[in-house]
Structure formats: structure tokens, C-alpha cells
Design a protein around this nucleic acid. Structure first.
Lengths: 205, 205, 205, 205
DNA sequence: AATGAATGAGCGTTCATTCAT
DNA sequence: AATGAATGAACGCTCATTCAT
């Protein structure tokens, strides 16, 4: 039954993702996986040849899902701060929705995402995937600010690329610190942070 | 032997700090500590009652050293971008120098700092210490931009506090991503990042 | 391999019982268990989730085996001292035989039994099991002396229940002191003690 | 200051006795001793060359104190059950008082006494001390029942020595089971047990 | 008489992984 | 496709003991 097998594989991936997000890669043991999936050790090893393989697969599973609601699909026209905000928040919400759908749970704890990354960080391929994702986001922001420039919504003489890059780092800072600091984050917190950052940013440029 | 005892204690702290920064808290075992310190397991336990105690002590040791070259000591006048840059970079360099002196090594690998933080994150007291440190940095930036405002170095109508906060997040983003991405960072990379961020920031405001 | 699994489990239980009786719970280490069973640490943990779990299981295994040759099966008529002695010693011998069969060894050292009990004493459930076992023995003795009363084998005016209880405590005292004092007890010693106690007891009532 | 030293020695002995009675020999660590005595590891080693030495010394200290209120001092005339009871309970109470005085505490937990004995059991000298103590008690009971015989207080034709021995074992059984079963025994429980045993015993002989 | 730094063997437990079925 | 028995290295930690001061 290849179909059943695929289902099992995806079941494991979903549980693994939940656990990695909740506890961090290192702190998820096969015992946890067995308990949550209801499968045996052997079954998990049948689908993923090692814990690292499971990590990589889980991460790619997450990326794939995120990308489906990705940036490149956007055909919206960015003509002012509000349309930028709308589109940006929209994308982020879709990404969060994607993860939610993946996990099948209403509220997600992103708290341990960083420490899920710890393991990813040691894997060149996954690291590159993240870098690409970040670059994509950077490129998207650049496009937005170039468009805003065309609509004269950013001050003359200021480079839209530098502006985009600055916002990118601000968003990264706020986002990461949130992972680090918060205990029980939901998507609402993220949307709040994004809105606040965008508002502040448009005040200073 | 109180003197010898203190020496041993500090020796352990230095080694532990090195190891925690290099491998992350979870990945540092007593075996590592034994190997690096040349002491026995019992000796380490004699000085620190548990691994968590060692973590807390190590972190407080780090904080203390960082704070000694802290922000509040600065009496410099911030009157333009260049004096701001000079003071800010100066402080950061002193902090890095402090850590270097602590570790007794020329080059530091910061890329596991985040995963040293993982453990810290689960300790309320240490978490609060970090938050305070961040708040101090934020306050310092606010003072700088209020001063720059007085010297008419930031555009009229723009709130220096919002500006300071924005730069703070940009710096956090750039810094943290650097921890995350780089494998072998030295202080030079940090200084570069700080300079680039400051330059870009002044271009966009 | 459910069959092999059960075999292994019982093997571990037998070895554990031997060791606990020989050295006392506290002094039996996983190293001992590994050495005697020829299994790995992991294998033992696979079958028993902790040392305490192993203790409980071992004790229940022992109880079960003892109970199978238990008191309640006896249909003998107690009509005089000699038939009482015969039945009582018979039961005790069967119990000892049961343990011997369990352990697969000819001579048993009971002198650490008390210190096997030390651990049991701290576990409410096991403690209750022992208490029940003792109560059963008490009840059995009561039945015997009620029967002897009917056959006019105990002096008139004396309460058979009090008599039974007294003998019970005498037996406990003699038995326990034997555990405590002897280094190398075999069942012969026990039978001797039982006989002597019964003889003396019938002399004084 | 030899005097101060002796004080320290006795302080350690008292604390050790308390701890051994409370936790059992094996479960008392130098850490416990340090905490309770307020002395350093070195100080305890200065007075007792090993843990076993401390055990032996502690036990001898206990024996000495018990013996001072011992059986041989009794000049009372045992002429009936009540005078026997009075004298026996009196001796036991004095022994308990002796231990109390030794420990300086009002209520004693005898719960772990057996497991204090575990260690003693492995020391031939201490074992012999206990045996002697028990023999003394046996001899005392023999004297009592010989005296009762003289006063025609035990049935004709019954051997006072066998009677004494029987009561001895009954008392041992009841006492030991009490150590084993009870969680929080005080001297009251012991006195109750002794009274009940004596009463029952005189009912059956 | 007393301190406490240091040792290293040993403890119970968890872990990712292998493999016969 | 799936089970779970078995492995053995590694983990954090406690222990009684030694010894320079």
C-alpha cells in the first residue's frame, strides 16, 4: 500500500515538525516520536534512515509548504505604504496559515524555532535553503520599495534597495528577538510586530 | 587554599565559556570540561553544584565582564554621525575585548552563542539579565539620537526615540543573523556589520 | 519475537531475584545485572523502565510463585500437633521449593532478604503485598488452632485466635532473626527453626 | 583542647546515630554528616578514619548508652505477671530514654534501624555485640520466669526456660515487624506492643 | 583540630541506531 | 510496511576517600 506508506511518512513529518518546534531538535528523542506517532521505532527508521534525515526531510517539508504560499505568486501592485503593508502582512499570514495547516493545530509555539535551527545550521544544504528563503524575502522587499519609489512614496535621493535592506534587518531583529524572548507566541504576536515595525519604519525614512 | 580555589573556579569558568560559545550548552559535556580544564569531574562539581549552576555562573561571569566596559561609562558627546559611530563601535570593541581577555584567546567563535542562549532562555533570571542588557543598549541609542536631534543631525519632525528603536532592531537583526549564519566569526566581521548598518541607516533616515 | 522477549524478561527477573537476595537491592548495580544476565544495559532497560520497576516486578514475580504453593490450597485436616506440624512445614517447604525452582539453584541465601525488603518497604504497593501475605499466614494459623480447639488439642478456656497470633509472632521473630544473623542459610535451617518453634510452643501452651 | 575535641567527637556520633536511624547506613553520606554537624569533611575524617569506623563507633556508643540502663542493674523481685510487666516495660523505657537523651530529640524514628543493622551485620564484632545483647535479654527473661515459677505463677510442669525463650521470640517478632512496617514510630508504639505481647502471652501459657 | 580542593570509580538513565522477524 | 529486542556509548551526578595546608 504505497498510499498508506505516504500517509505514514507525512504523519511522521507533521509530528516531527510539531516536536521540533516545541522542544528543539536535540530534545526530541525517538521515544517522543514513538509516543506521538503511535508507531514503532522500526517504522520511523523505515521511513527516515536517521534522525538527521528526519530533520532534513521535516525542514524541506516545512519549506515546501511555506513556498507554496510564497512571495513569487504575488501580482499585487505596491503603490503606497498601505498596499505594501497589506501585501506583506498577507504573505506572512499565508505562511503562518500554511504551517498551521501542516501541523493541524490552531496555535503554534515558535519558541524553539531557533533551536530547531541549531541543527539546521550544521547542515550545509538546509542552511543554504534558509539563506535562499531570506534572499527571496530581501528581493521581494526590494521590488516593493522600487515600486514605491516609482510612485514617489519614498523620499527623493534615497536608494530603495538600501531602504529595503534596512527594513529587512529590522524585521529580522524584531522577529528573532521574539522567538528568543516569548514563551507562548501565536501568529497574532507576529502580525503585531510586523505592523509596528512597518509603521515605525515609514516614520523614520 | 582560598586563592588557589578562586583561580580554579575562574579557570573552569573561562573554559566553560569557551566551550559553551563553541559548542552550545547542550553539547558541552563534563567529559569536555575535564579534558579542557585538566581537572577531575569531582573537582568541577566541587566548584559548581550542577551543570546548570555552571551555566548560570558562566553567564554571570560573562555579563560582569561585559558590563565593566559598559555603556554608562561613556561621557562622549554625540554630535554627528561620525562621533556616534566612533562611540558605538568603541563600546562594542571594548565589549569584545573584554570577552577576549576573559577567554584569553585572540579569535572568538560567536556562532554558537545563540545555542548557549537556548539554555539561558529557560532560566528566568538569566533571561531577565539579557533583557536588561538589551534595554540598556536601547536606552543608550535613545540618548545618542536625542543628542543628535539637539545638534540638528536628524531630520526635523522625526522622533529620535523611534529612530533609535529602529536602529536597535536593525542591529539586532544583522547581528543575530550573523551568529546564525557564520561559521567562524571574528570581531572584525562584527565591526564591519556595525559600520555597514550605521551607514545604511543614516542613508535612509 | 514475543516468545523470546518473555524468556528474556523472566531471565532478567530470575537473575535480579538472585542478586537482590544475595546482595540487597541497593547493592545490586546494573553492572551486576549485565554481568549475570549477559545482556546489555539497554536490553534490561528495554524490559524494565527503571531499577525500581525491576524491583517491583521481581517482587511480584516472587510473590506469584510463592502464592501458587499457597496456604489456601490446603485441604488437610488439622487434628493434632503432629498434623499441624506436618501441614505447616509442608507449606513452608513448598514455598521454599517454589523459590528454588524460580532461581534454579539448590541453596538460597536468605540473609539479605531483609535488605531486599528495605527497598520494598519504601514502596507502598509492595508493602501492602507483604502485609497481605502475613495476614494470610496469620489467618491460616487461626484456622489451624480453631480446628485444634475442636479436637480438644488446646487447653480449655484458651482463645485459639490469641494462640495462633502468639505463634505467628514467635515464628516471625525466629525467622527474622535468622535472616539477620545467619550468613549462609539453607532451607534446612528454616525447617529446623520451624520445628523447634512448634515444639516449644506446644510445650508452653 | 582535648576537651573540645571530645565534644566534637560525641557531636559527630550523635548526629551520625540520628542519621543512621533515620536513613539507614548506606543512605547517609558525608554530605549529610557535614550538613548536620556543621563541620567539614576533613574534621569528620580526623575523628573517624572511615565511614565504617564511624558506624562501628556510633553503634558502640549506642550500645554503651543502652547498657548503662541495662538489665543487670535490676534488683526487683518478679513475683507475678504485673511485677514482671512493670520491670520489663521499665527497662525498655529506660533504654528508649537513654537513646532519646543521646539524640537530644523527643521523638525517635526507629524505622530504619534494621537497615542500620544491615551494615552492622557485615561486621563480625558488631554482630557479636548484638548477639550478646540479645542473649542478655534472653537470660533476663529466663531469670524472670524462673522467679515466677518459684512463686507458682506459671503452670506446673512447664519449663520456665522454654517459656522465656518463647516470649523472647514473640517479642522479637512483634518488634522487628514494627520496625519494618511502621513509618513513624515513637516509644509509645513500642510500649503498646510490649504490653499487648505480654498480655497475650500470659493468656496462652 | 580543622579546612576544603581534588580524585576517580561508580551510579541509574537516555540515546540513536541495528537488525532479525 | 512495521515491530520491538538488543546494543553500547554517553550523559549528569554522587560517593568515600586523600591530602596539602
Amino acid at each position: 500500500m504505497p498510499k498508506a506508506s505516504l500517509t505514514t511518512r507525512v504523519d511522521i513529518l507533521k509530528i516531527a515538525l510539531q516536536l521540533f518546534l516545541k522542544k528543539g531538535y536535540k530534545d526530541v528523542s525517538y521515544q517522543d516520536l514513538i509516543k506521538e506517532t503511535g508507531l514503532s521505532k522500526g517504522a520511523i527508521y523505515h521511513h527516515f534512515k536517521s534522525k538527521e534525515d528526519l530533520l532534513i526531510s521535516t525542514f524541506e517539508f516545512l519549506l515546501e509548504s511555506s513556498r507554496q504560499q510564497g512571495l513569487e505568486k504575488q501580482g499585487h501592485i505596491i503603490q503606497d505604504k498601505e498596499s505594501f503593508r497589506e501585501v506583506f502582512i498577507g504573505i506572512k499570514m499565508e505562511q503562518i496559515k500554511g504551517i498551521k495547516k501542516l501541523l493541524g493545530s490552531k496555535s503554534i509555539k515558535f519558541n524553539k524555532l531557533l533551536f530547531f535551527f541549531e541543527a539546521i545550521n550544521e547542515n550545509e544544504r538546509l542552511k543554504n535553503s534558509i539563506m535562499e528563503l531570506l534572499k527571496e524575502e530581501m528581493k521581494f522587499l526590494e521590488k516593493c520599495f522600487i515600486s514605491l519609489k516609482k510612485h514617489n512614496k519614498i523620499p527623493k535621493g534615497k536608494d530603495p534597495v538600501v531602504i529595503a535592506e534596512s527594513l529587512f534587518w529590522m524585521l529580522q531583529g524584531a522577529e528573532m528577538l521574539m522567538f528568543f524572548v516569548k514563551d507562548n507566541d501565536s501568529e497574532k504576536d507576529f502580525i503585531k510586530i510586523y505592523n509596528k515595525t512597518i509603521d515605525d519604519f515609514f516614520k523614520i525614512i
